[in-house]
Design a binder for these strands. Structure first.
Length: 588
DNA sequence: CTTTCTCTAAAGTGCACTGTGGCCAGTGC
């Protein structure tokens, strides 16, 4: 019995109750109960077994008894009965944009739709249009939502595969015949989404290692199993390949399988110019006048042999990195250790799940010198946004709490909504009482590109807007971002000295890495922000640093590498005069 | 279903957008 089982059952009950159109507050109670269980800072399973849940906020009499039943027996009769009323495949429909419980219920009841496949067929044959509440447009929208979902199948977010990669590398490392291990592919390059995991192991016993790999947890199906390569499908549909090579071939295999394909093609051309061919095993001479091939022990030796400085995997997209490496002018990329603090974090005051004090302690534990709090503003009702009174009380609380820290400080801020017309959710009189402010779009996503760009530019022109939050609002593999003219926003950020956030939530990673080089070259500063709603989400910083590296950012391009004193000074400087601060950080 | 300065009773995020159907209902944030 695990905590996850308890959470899953409660969440499924909520979904089923939605289909049955139960009292919405009842449904909400199950959802919040699930969230409480998920983030409970103690052994909730044991507490449930002992029936010791009384007094936990969000868990009343009914949930207490149900959780006890789950913890003791592994299942819940109430849940099983509820589940028997609907086919399990009906849940697939909840992933479709635009379909909620009410519409799904109608589709199920009036059309016998039980699965995604049923729905697609019904739409394609024109059976849905004409149903009360559905017209031609709805039918088309459903089809495009289905296509959208299909286009995401087999693709995974960097953040969701990271734990599996860590676990598998660890298991490989434990084997006595393992010499070296590495993860390659798009994961190593830090792409925001990946299609598979490519693992590599150096060993003199390749067949033993590929056999060992079959015992790894979570494998659903073995797609191919040879002596040096094995390919498996994991339970969630993610494909994972392992290649076992000799220690001598390891650097070449690592380089080759890390890609990108385009980067490797360019590299091979470079090798040819020296009279060598390059593949996943080694360099070999292809002409009589070939230059002498140097020894290769590590991946960097390959780059050096080709007359290049070592190119970090994140940069290997053939976007100019080879030319720059030839000139020996590769940027020294930012590293996680360079960060001194971070902004844009939530607490229980809005929709975060940890208190101000817990968030501060977590930041201290990570070794940060400062943490910026930025709870939602009043217009974000869905996120329990703060009104002026609550915000000012929070500011006062932060000021008081700051007296109790040594070598650490909180910055009081707000994630203020950018309203439809580009005005802000709080007046300047309120904003000027904060240490900083992140401005973000949370509603009216469907404006035209021109209107959206104008809207955001108006917000950035405000003296109190320190930084722009998640540039496009995208949710990777889930929702397209709103359309906005990145180039114009970047220009405006440079002009107004507004910092642009690199939101590290693995679902967002927004602004996209493809734009950062341009921003950097215009002199725009980046703030790597976790958008943490839990203490453990401060660890998202790790993903943000990888994206920053993909965007060629250096320590000096990232504002939260400044120490507390420098950061404090920068925030107190009027925006127009921050040129100096920006130059200063650049030299640092 | 849970909480509560109405504690055996009532209140519990509110607005914008879309499409449909006739001025509303469902969805998403």
């Amino acid at each position: 019995m695990t905590r996850e089982t308890m959470v899953t059952i409660l969440e499924e009950i909520a979904l089923l109750m939605e289909l049955k159109e139960e009292n919405p507050f009842k449904i909400k109670a199950y959802r919040s109960g699930a969230e409480t269980v998920r983030s409970f800072p103690d052994d909730i399973v044991q507490r449930a077994i002992d029936n010791d849940l009384t007094g936990i906020k969000g868990i009343g009499e009914a949930l207490r008894d149900k959780l006890h039943e789950i913890a003791v027996s592994g299942k819940l009769e109430f849940h099983e009965k509820l589940r028997a009323e609907f086919p399990a495949t009906l849940f697939e429909l909840f992933d479709l944009q635009g379909l909620g419980p009410k519409k799904i219920k109608v589709l199920h009841r009036d059309h016998g739709i039980n699965s995604l496949a049923d729905l697609q067929l019904a739409c394609e044959t024109g059976k849905i249009a004409g149903t009360p509440g559905f017209g031609d447009k709805s039918q088309l929208n459903i089809l495009s939502a289905i296509a959208q979902k299909a286009s995401h199948s087999g693709i995974f977010r960097l953040g969701s595969v990271a734990p599996i990669v860590r676990e598998f590398l660890d298991l490989l490392q434990q084997h006595p015949d393992t010499l070296r291990t590495a993860v390659c592919g798009s994961y190593r390059r830090g792409k925001e989404t990946v299609r598979d995991i490519d693992l590599l192991v150096a060993t003199s016993q390749p067949a033993v290692l590929t056999e060992y790999f079959t015992t790894f947890p979570g494998i659903k199906q073995i797609l191919a199993h040879g002596d040096t390569k094995i390919s498996v499908l994991l339970e969630d549909g993610l494909q994972c390949d392992l290649r076992a090579v000799t220690n001598a071939h390891f650097p070449f295999a690592l380089q080759y399988f890390s890609g990108s394909k385009e980067h490797n093609v360019a590299l091979r051309q470079l090798a040819l110019s020296k009279g060598w061919s390059l593949n996943e095993y080694d360099f070999s001479p292809v002409r009589d006048d070939a230059q002498l091939i140097p020894d290769v022990y590590e991946e960097k030796d390959i780059y050096h042999a080709l007359g290049l400085s070592y190119i970090a995997p994140e940069m290997r997209e053939n976007l100019g990195e080879i030319e720059v490496a030839q000139q020996g002018e590769l940027p020294k990329l930012i590293e996680i250790d360079n960060l001194r603090g971070t902004f844009h974090n939530h607490t229980t005051e809005s929709d975060g799940r940890n208190s101000l004090e817990e968030m501060a302690q977590a930041a201290i534990d990570l070794g940060l010198q400062y943490l910026g709090i930025a709870d939602h503003s009043r217009s974000s009702f869905q996120a329990n946004g703060l009104d002026e009174d609550r915000l000012l009380r929070q500011v006062a609380k932060i000021r008081k709490l700051n007296n109790s820290f040594e070598g650490f400080q909180l910055f009081a801020g707000s994630e203020v909504d950018i309203l439809k017309d580009g005005s802000l959710d709080f007046s300047d009189e309120i904003l000027c009482q904060l240490d900083y402010c992140v401005a973000s779009v949370h509603a009216s996503f469907t404006l035209s590109e021109e209107e959206m760009t104008k809207r955001v530019i108006r917000a950035m022109e405000n003296e109190h807007v320190t930084m722009l939050g998640h540039m496009t609002g995208r949710l990777l593999l889930q929702r397209e971002g709103y359309t906005i003219n990145h180039a114009k926003i970047i220009d405006c950020a440079a002009e107004t000295r507004t910092i642009i956030e690199l939101n590290c939530n693995p679902k967002r990673l927004d602004m996209d890495w493809r734009w950062w080089r341009r921003a950097r070259d215009k002199g725009v500063l980046c703030s790597i922000n976790p958008d943490a709603h839990f203490t453990h989400q401060l660890q998202f910083l790790h993903f943000g640093v990888i994206q920053a590296r993909k965007g060629w950012l250096r320590k000096g391009d990232v504002v939260n590498t400044l120490d507390y004193e420098e950061m404090s000074r920068l925030l107190k400087t009027p925006k127009a005069q921050r040129t100096v601060a920006a130059d200063y950080i650049r030299q640092a």
